[in-house]
Design a protein around this nucleic acid. Structure first.
Length: 491
RNA sequence: GUCCCCGUCGUCUAGCCCGGUCUAGGACAUCGCCCUUUCACGGCGGCAACACGGGUUCGAAUCCCGUCGGGGACACCA
């Protein structure tokens, strides 16, 4: 295959925190694009910030990517022909390419200290001027340079940005964007510790890794002209760019922790499904038509295109994600759901490891009874805690129902009849209860509601009859007795 | 402050490039009704948007200009 037409994209997180939903969506778009085009998806770790990078973050990112099913063709753990895939291991490469720029007079050493620069910036800010380096080291004579070098003065390497002309970013989602070169800074390529800055490392890697399309958040848009200039300085052709709008919180600022859960890992722990997450994220900034909402992974791959990516920022909608998760939850077999729910039951102290085969089967029956009410894994606790408690606690708003005068007598009657029942199937329980209702001339709810409270402690619950069947005769009768006692006290 | 991006129901969006088919469609959320042992599901229905102002045109959500609003970037962070 002709390499120049081969699609190669990358996701390049810096391991300075967990995988954020914004990052995850960027990764997803890259992945979808690669899979759609039959290209390669590269994972590259941008760990040039020694202060903030951590092994733990790296691991978490890899784990979350795998959970989402975003597999990479090249990168950590899988290798590839263009490695290493950790920027921290590519230092010699950056110095080499930087040296080339220096030799050709396209970059220069700057000896200004960080304090000097900080002071200059403050001054400019005060005057309301453009905040840029004043280029005082740009035209140092070679004598001056070697003098300072000999004196052991620390330096950074800066790019000699053109002072006039324009740089045009041809963006697939935003269109053509023109930047005046005069607004560009002589930005830093190599820091004084020898590590490259983001803009430099990113270009060198994308160039050397033969990345064809750079798909990333539009917060990088203003970096793009700088990067294009670096490609040109090397006589290289820049990749195609696609800047996707960012994900916002409800207040329309960048989505962050204060808006709620933002890390993929958090959603996973809360009991969200990866396919729901992928589907939701795909729809945040991309759509296929005016009707389709549910996309299986293969549909997404088949239908994804950068042209259909929206250019407007999107607000992250927790409610819609939850709904979508519910849709996928329904589609999962009971056994999956039962499995998914276990960690939440454990965390709530409702069950304890190790789980017996019996208990596992019981959880399956519970999940079956709870049915479609369970949209997110962690909801199992509020929905079904009473299945796992010996003593149930009554909700506050429940007193009004238990207080009713007919309750104690009716509960007593029910106890007696259930006692005599052969077996304890929902159908036979229903006969007893309906019979009682008509004999006593009650409305259905007048019996069912007190019973519901007796068994669950709540006003709302899944189907009562099925709950009773799963709970079993003994526990049902015990709970009825207890509720009757409570009701009596309230009379 | 400077540069850049963006502006259709509360939210995600379709429509915009190639003006009329848009009394602007769908989904989530919300409200009401039906179903019903409650909740959920399901069914039916309601509320709800082209930021504003000028052009261009027989005709503008769609094209042009301006205003306003929001966001992002301006680090030896990525």
């Amino acid at each position: 295959m002709d390499l120049s037409s081969q699609v190669r994209v990358r996701f390049a997180p810096s391991p300075t925190g967990y995988l954020h939903v914004g990052g995850a969506r960027t990764a997803l778009f890259n992945w979808l694009f690669a899979r759609n085009k039959g290209g390669q998806f590269v994972l590259r770790i941008e760990d040039t910030d020694m202060e903030r990078s951590s092994e733990e973050s790296y691991r978490a990112i890899v784990e979350d990517m795998r959970w989402l099913g975003l597999d990479w063709d090249e990168g950590p753990k899988v290798g590839g022909d263009y490695g290493p895939y950790f920027q921290s291991e590519r230092r010699p490469i950056y110095s080499e390419w930087c040296q080339r720029l220096l030799n050709e007079g396209k970059a220069y050493r700057c000896f200004c200290s960080q304090d000097d620069l900080k002071r200059m910036r403050e001054e400019l800010r005060r005057l309301g001027k453009d905040i840029k380096y004043d280029r005082r080291c740009r035209d140092l004579s070679s004598d001056e340079v070697s003098q300072r070098l000999d004196a052991g003065k620390p330096f950074v390497v800066r790019f000699k940005a053109p002072l006039s002309g324009q740089t045009i970013v041809e963006d697939i989602v935003k269109g053509n964007i023109t930047f005046e070169n005069s607004t560009l800074d002589d930005f830093i390529l190599l820091k004084s510790d020898g590590y490259p800055t983001y803009n430099f490392a990113c270009v060198i890697d994308d160039m050397l890794m033969k990345i064809s399309h750079v798909i990333r958040g539009d917060d990088h848009l203003s970096n793009t002209p700088k990067q294009i200039l670096i490609y040109r300085a090397f006589g290289a052709t820049p990749p195609r760019f696609a800047h996707v709008p960012m994900i916002m919180g409800p207040d329309r600022t960048r989505l962050s922790k204060r808006h709620g859960a933002t890390s993929v890992g958090q959603f996973r722990e809360d009991g969200y499904l990866p396919e729901a997450m992928v589907n939701y994220l795909a729809l945040l900034g991309w759509s296929y038509d005016d009707a389709t909402t549910l996309f299986a992974r293969e549909d997404l791959i088949a239908k994804f295109s950068l042209e259909k990516v929206s250019s407007t920022p999107a607000v992250f909608d927790y409610a819609k994600l939850q709904w979508l998760n519910g849709e996928y939850m329904k589609r999962r077999p009971i056994s999956d759901r039962a499995h998914l729910v276990v960690p939440h039951l454990i965390r709530a102290g409702l069950v304890h490891e190790p789980l017996s085969a019996e208990l596992k089967a019981y959880i399956g029956r519970v999940v079956d009874v709870v049915g479609e009410r369970l949209k997110v894994g962690n909801q199992i606790v509020e929905l079904a805690d009473f299945f796992f408690k010996d003593e149930i606690s009554y909700d506050e708003d429940v007193a009004g129902i238990l207080k009713q005068h007919h309750v104690p007598a009716v509960l007593k009657l029910l106890e007696d009849r259930l006692e005599k029942l052969d077996g304890f199937a929902a159908a036979s329980i229903e006969k007893v209860m309906r019979g009682l209702v008509s004999e006593m001339g009650l409305k259905t709810g007048q019996l069912f509601q007190p019973v519901r409270i007796a068994l669950t402690g709540k006003k709302h619950s899944p189907d009562l009859l099925r709950i009773m069947e799963v709970l079993g005769k003994e526990r049902v009768i015990a709970r009825l007795k207890l509720a009757r006692k409570k009701a009596l006290e309230m009379q």
